[in-house]
Amino acid sequence: MSTVHVTPVRTYLLVFFALMALTLLTVGAAHVNIAHHLPGQMTDAINDAVAMAIAVTKATLVILFFMGVWHSARINKVVVWSSFFFLFVLFAFSLADYFSRGWLGVPGK
């Protein structure tokens, strides 16, 4: 507990306004069918992807600044990011099963 980094209020305000702006953006984006405005074959999933991308950005901002990870020791960073990595593994591997059903034409699989 030797040196604690004190973040200036300005940073917190900037992050706060960024979060608010991103919230407005994600609400706005949800009302637009993005796939219609892009060339080529795009599915509706693009809307979901955009919403999730914005959410990830916002979460990253909160973790880095409000939770102080930006200025914490390297070992803490490892702990934080590896936790999210395992959460990602849980989602990604489970979904991989659902998405890959029927690829090989085995009945019921």
Partner: peptide, 22 residues
């Protein structure tokens, strides 16, 4: 250890592709 759980599910409804990866 966190990447291999699907090997308990080879004969469940899990997809063959996921099974092969696991």
């Amino acid at each position: 250890g966190f990447l291999v759980w699907g090997h308990h599910m080879f004969i469940s409804g899990q997809s063959v592709v996921a099974g092969a990866i696991f």
